[in-house]
Design a protein around this nucleic acid. Sequence first.
DNA 1: AACATTCTGTTGCGTATGCAACAAATTTAA
DNA 2: TTAAATTTGTTGCATACGCAACAGAATGTT
Lengths: 223, 223
Amino acid sequence: MQKYIEILKQSPLFEGMKGEETEGLLFSLNPKIKKYKKGVFIIMAGAPVREFGIVLSGSVLVIKEDMRGLRSIIAQCGPSEMFAEALACAQVERSPVSVVVDENAEIMFINFESVMRAGQRAARLIKNMLMLLARKNIFLNSKLEHVSKRNIREKLLSYLMEQRRRAGRAEFEIPLTQTDLADFLFIDRSAMARELAKMRSERLVTFTGRKFAIKNIKGGKYE
Amino acid sequence: MQKYIEILKQSPLFEGMKGEETEGLLFSLNPKIKKYKKGVFIIMAGAPVREFGIVLSGSVLVIKEDMRGLRSIIAQCGPSEMFAEALACAQVERSPVSVVVDENAEIMFINFESVMRAGQRAARLIKNMLMLLARKNIFLNSKLEHVSKRNIREKLLSYLMEQRRRAGRAEFEIPLTQTDLADFLFIDRSAMARELAKMRSERLVTFTGRKFAIKNIKGGKYE
DNA sequence: AACATTCTGTTGCGTATGCAACAAATTTAA
DNA sequence: TTAAATTTGTTGCATACGCAACAGAATGTT
């Protein structure tokens, strides 16, 4: 357990709390830690959700599959990030999404009710949780912005521009494979590859694998 | 002010609080109430957001406009519902969205920082806010589910099925005009009208204006 | 090192969909 | 009650896109 404390201190969920505070609180919250291999389903769509997860190592994907087996990626969570907190908080009885391991992962689970019952000592945690939910909200909105674009090129540019902004430089590495990116943007992979090739031939972007570089769009339309 | 207290008691934000409690807390939060006419912009994209709003009457749309003036509707808020709380909470300096009045509205604004400073007496409010943010999160996810569908018919069915579920009956009235619905689902209005006509001719749906009725899809694919 | 798996790149085909443009119906405002 | 504005319905056209299928590159596994 002790080895995880360091990772958890990094987590924005415990921001502003002293080490002992965090440990004491954690003790009373009685978290469970589990290890998973790539591809394993941590949460299955349809199941109730009482606990939220914190990624200690590796990464997970929040996904949604339709009846035809078409997969859509809702979000990706890396170390110290949280998932399923909205579901646990809203006490949903049937999860609309699945959570699947992307890279071999260690996950800490915390029961949401136990946080709410912890009273005054969890006040800071709750405030942090509020902030994080707000941020995730904004993230979902930005994702909506990407997919609201009416064609593939605009979706790609919207996404890539955001990645560039986050990286702070013209060259950057996206956190998804191209295959996953297509699922993330709800578009066909081959159509995306075609459009990327076209954009490359127009010298709008350069890329190999996950490494991208994009030109500044004239007129600053997208910045 | 007093006349609004009744509306606010309805609001899930103040759920679980006694009347006097709500009034006392409100007093110290020093909210502002304003009236707006249809079409007026309450929040302009690009502006900082420090306060969140509660709709006392009328309704508002949270929208996003791209450089070509193409409008996308992110969400709609009616009486006792909240908006911009995620933005205020995350203290964003440049709002990515605009908020525009749909039907003549009265709005109460509360400064988010003042809530965080209110301490123990606002504990319940903060918990409620947490729950509401979680629900909005889930709403955004369900919206993502609609727009993740790969063609117009599936998007429509996904949306209409949800509306039917909420109404609890096969006949229901959607809260948007068809024009707005198209913007909400990020699709072309005329293409949507064409698909709706096709679905009607196949006796999948019947509708006039905002009133819809949909058949149960065989096999329960969508329920 | 050998094999299996996953990812990237490319192409032909058919069609769903965005767009523009207009008429008719309905709602809102004066 | 009229006029104005908005919403709904329809259609032709061009094409962007989803789909299927396959080859080569890259990555992971034993």
